[in-house]
Structure formats: structure tokens, C-alpha cells
Design a binder for these strands. Structure first.
Lengths: 146, 146
DNA sequence: TATTGTTATACTCTATAACTATA
DNA sequence: TATAGTTATAGAGTATAACAATA
């Protein structure tokens, strides 16, 4: 087997790992979320809103969803008292979304539970290896300049 | 900062990476799947059926879904000509599911497209680093003995 | 006229509960 | 009676298209 073939196999193995990792982590997130009646999408929403109070259109960008989809999502989250819509003074059309106190509290709780649920996986690596994976995954996730 | 705190931060950073990686890969899979009218779940289904002809109940186990959910899933996949149901001789109640020729062809196509779509990410790492991540992720995904 | 967001509609995905057929 | 699978029903998530309000 030549150099080229070896490289292809390597990349293919890595891709399998990435897909498997993606599903494994998604399964954990789904399970933890379900315990609080939160879908993966609502989980992401809470995560995003922890650092921002975006407008609906920005939220659609973050989530890579249609604005109509986000409208429904926020409708349900608002009904449950997790988020609040507010108008913006600078533009009468815009709507800004933010976490309610209840939503913020839930976001923190869920975050901690996710950390706990992922610990058994990360715990299979030594601290050095954890650092190594962290460094390499972070590099892989870095946006390349357009 | 002491040893314990450092370890906690390390693990937390790694968890963020894992969650981000999961979403990034899921986004790629969703995009590639959408080009062929395949949801993430149907994508997983095709992947699973490439190596197996499971019964409905086994499929539900693989996918971690209710059997009624799998019934609907297979209904739609069968309508599209991607899979076939067949009865088993040993048990008149069981139904075995397998890929059709069309489904197998689609599975291969999509697999290649996913590899291509993930290449920009893995390509940010040197071959040595790719091997390293592969080794460590594989270790992390390994089931620990119960 | 262009934009921001919502509403109407339709389909997929998902679960629970009730059902059919076989064991 | 228990098991394998399907059907009925309901709700969340999603997109497309049409709409209202503001710019």
C-alpha cells in the first residue's frame, strides 16, 4: 500500500471517528435535554442565548434555520417562560430575544448535566491526551479565512 | 490555580470542543443529506443497513428510537425505493430490512460526499495530527466493559 | 420598494397507546 | 400470555409561500 492510499485511509478513519463522535455526543445531549423536555434545537438555543440577545434574523443565522422556523421555536420557548421577546428602539420591525431568569437557570443546570454526562467519555483519556485532543479539535474547528 | 482546577478547566474545554464538533459535523451531514432529501435519521439508517439486514426491533435499538417510529421511517424509505422489507422464515412476526440496489447506490454516493465535505476540516491537521486525533477519539469512543 | 418578522400550510420525526398476528 | 410489528393520534421541528408592519 502506497503513501497516497495510506493517507486516504487515515483521513477516512478520522472521518468515521468524527461522525461517530458527533452521534455519540448528540445522543448524550438528546438524553440530557429530554430530561428537561428540551430538543437538541432548544438546547442549542439556550446555549446561544447565554452569551447574546440576538434579533430573530441573527438567531436564524446562528441556528442555520429559516426565520419562520425560529418564530415557532421562540413561540414555544416563550410559552414555557424560557425566553422573552422585546422590541428594539432603533428599528420598529426588529425583535430581540433574551433568556428569562428561568431560562438562564435552566441553561446553567443543563450545562452542568451535560458536562457530567460527557465526563465518562473524556475520562477515558489521560489529562495529557485530553489536552492534545482539545488542541487539535480546536484547530480543526477554526474557521479558515475566506 | 491548583491541579484540580486546572483539570476541570481542561475537561470543560474538551467538552466544549466535543459539543462544537458534534454540531459542526451534524451540520455537514444535514447539508449533504438535504441535497438528497435525506434527514439525519435516514442518513444513519442507510449507514446502518450497509453492514446489516436487521429486524425492525434491532433497528430500533441501533437508532435508539421507538419501534413505531422505525415503522414510519421504513415506510417512507420503502416508498422511495431505498429499502425493502422481507419476512423471515423462522418467525412469522419478524420483518427484516435491507437496502435496495437504489438504496445501496445512494448510500455509497452520500458516503463519498460526506467524506468530501469533511475534508476541509480534517485537512487543517497534518497527517501526524490526524493520526493522533484518530487514535484518541477511537479510544474515547470505545465502550468500557460494563 | 426592501426589510423584519409572523402566519398558513404541509411534511418529517418522534412518542404513547391501542391494535393485529404469530409464538 | 407474551412478543413483533403496525396503526392511530398528537406534538415538535422544519421549509415554502404569502402576509403585515416598518423603513
Amino acid at each position: 500500500m502506497g503513501i497516497v492510499a495510506t493517507s486516504a485511509d487515515l483521513r477516512s478513519d478520522l472521518m468515521d471517528d468524527l461522525v461517530q463522535t458527533s452521534f455519540a455526543v448528540a445522543a448524550v445531549l438528546t438524553r440530557v435535554g429530554a430530561a428537561h423536555d428540551l430538543s437538541l434545537t432548544l438546547l442549542r438555543l439556550l446555549g446561544i442565548l447565554q452569551d447574546r440577545q440576538p434579533k430573530m434574523a441573527e438567531l436564524a443565522d446562528y441556528l442555520v434555520l429559516e426565520k419562520s422556523t425560529v418564530s415557532g421555536l421562540i413561540d414555544r420557548a416563550e410559552t414555557r417562560g424560557l425566553v422573552q421577546r422585546s422590541t428594539t428602539p432603533e428599528d420598529g420591525r426588529s425583535v430581540r430575544v433574551g433568556l428569562s431568569t428561568k431560562g438562564r437557570c435552566l441553561a446553567r443546570t443543563v450545562e452542568a448535566e451535560i458536562a457530567g454526562a460527557l465526563a465518562p467519555l473524556t475520562g477515558r483519556l489521560t489529562p495529557q491526551d485530553q489536552r492534545q485532543v482539545h488542541t487539535l479539535l480546536a484547530r480543526m474547528l477554526t474557521e479558515t479565512a475566506p
